[in-house]
Design a binder for these strands. Sequence first.
DNA 1: TAGGATGGAATTGTTAGACAAGAATGCACG
DNA 2: CGTGCATTCTTGTCTAACAATTCCATCCTA
Lengths: 223, 223
Amino acid sequence: MSTDAHLELGPSSLTDALYESIRKRIVNGEIPQGEKLTEVRLATEYNVARPTAKAALERLTGLGLLRRTAHKTAVVPVLDEAEIRDLFFSRITIEKAAVSALAATGEVPADAARAQVAIEYAARDRVFENQVEADITFHTALVAGVGSRRLSRMHELIIGEVHLSMGQYKAHRKVDPSTVAAEHAAVLEAIASGDPAAAAHHLTHHLEQAEARLLSTLPQTRS
Amino acid sequence: MSTDAHLELGPSSLTDALYESIRKRIVNGEIPQGEKLTEVRLATEYNVARPTAKAALERLTGLGLLRRTAHKTAVVPVLDEAEIRDLFFSRITIEKAAVSALAATGEVPADAARAQVAIEYAARDRVFENQVEADITFHTALVAGVGSRRLSRMHELIIGEVHLSMGQYKAHRKVDPSTVAAEHAAVLEAIASGDPAAAAHHLTHHLEQAEARLLSTLPQTRS
DNA sequence: TAGGATGGAATTGTTAGACAAGAATGCACG
DNA sequence: CGTGCATTCTTGTCTAACAATTCCATCCTA
C-alpha cells in the first residue's frame, strides 16, 4: 500500500513555516518593537529565496504584526496608547457580538472550556508564554464557536496585535491569574445560561480590565 | 526646477494597477462567479510577470474576492444563501458599532452625506454601477468616520464581498432607489440627533432589508 | 460497457540572478 | 553649523527555470 504520509509534519508550505517562525518570535517579544526586518536578511538567515521572505513579510503585515510602506523596510509596530485603545475598541466590537450570539444558543464552545483549564495549568506552572497563548486560544475559541467564517477572519486581523502587545509589554506578569480565570468564568456562565446581555456585559468588563492592565505597563511617551 | 511629477497618474505600483483592474472587473460582474483565474493567463493578458499577477491574486484573495487553495487555480467565489447570511451578520456587527460610536459624538461624516447625494444622482441617471459604487462609498464612509483604523480594516475585509454580491446578482436593479435613500437618511438623522440606539436600529433594519433583497435574487440551489 | 488505474498536461510553489527606482545615510562644501 | 549631493541600501519588478502537485483524459481490465 505504501501509505507513506506525505511528510505533512511541519507546515506544508515553506512560506507557512517561515511565517509561523517569525510570527512566534514577534508575539513572544523575541523581536522587540521597532525592530526592522529586511527581506534579504531574513532570506539569508532562514536559507530561503527573497520572494519567499517577501511573501512571509506580506502576510505578517496583513495581520498587523508588521508595518510596511513602499520601498521601506518592514518594522515591528510600536503600539502607543491611542493604538491600544483602538485595538481594544475593535476587539470588544467583535467579541461582544460573538458571545451574544453564543448566549442566544446557550452553547459554550468546547475549545473555550478547554483553554480555560489550560490557563490554570500555565498559571500554576508559572509559564507565562503558555498563559498568554492559552488566553488567546480562549478568546479565539469564543469567536470560532459562533461558526461565522467572516467574524473569525476579522478577529484574526486584530488578535495578532493583541498577542503582540501582551507578549511585548509582558503585562501578564503583573496579573493575578485567578482574576482572569474568574472573569472568563463569568462570561462562560452567562453564555451557558442563555443571557446575551449578561454575556456581553461580562465580556466587556473583562476586556476593559485587560486594556487597563496593558495601558498601565506602557512606557511614558513624553519626549 | 523640473518638477516633472513622477508620473503618479495611475497607481504608483504595477501590482496596485493590476489589482485594481481585476477588482473592478470582479465586483462589476464582468468576471462571473465560478470563473477561474490562472496566474499565467493574467500575466500574459496584462503583459506583466507571473509573480506580479500572483501578488495581485493574493491581495484579492485577502479581500474575499477570490478563493485559493494550494496548487489550485484561483476562482471567483459563488456566494450561496448561507454565505450571504454570514456576510451580513458580520457586516451588521461592524456597521452597527460604527453608527453607535458616531451617534455618541453626534457628528455625521461629510463623506457619507456626499455619497448620499451621489446615490440620488446615479439613481436619476439610471447608471446602476455608479449607484452600487455610491452605496458602498456611503457605508464605507460611515465606518471611516469613527476614525478607528482597525474597524475600517475589518470592514474592508467584508465590504468587497458585499460589492461582489451586489454586482454579480444585480440585486440593485430591482430596488426602488428612494427606499434606499430613505433608509440611509434615517440612519444619518439618528446619528445627528445623538441617539446611538436609534442609529443602530435604523442601520440594522436597512441592512436586513438589503440582505433580503439580495437573497430574493439568488438562483435556486436545489440540485 | 463500466470502472479504476496510469500516464501526460496544466498550474502553482520555489529558487536564482539581475536591473531599476525610491529612500536613507553620510560626506563634502558653503 | 547647516545644506545639498552622491553613495548605498532596500525594495519593486522581470526573466528563466525546475520541482511538486493537481487535474484530466486515455487506456486497460473486469
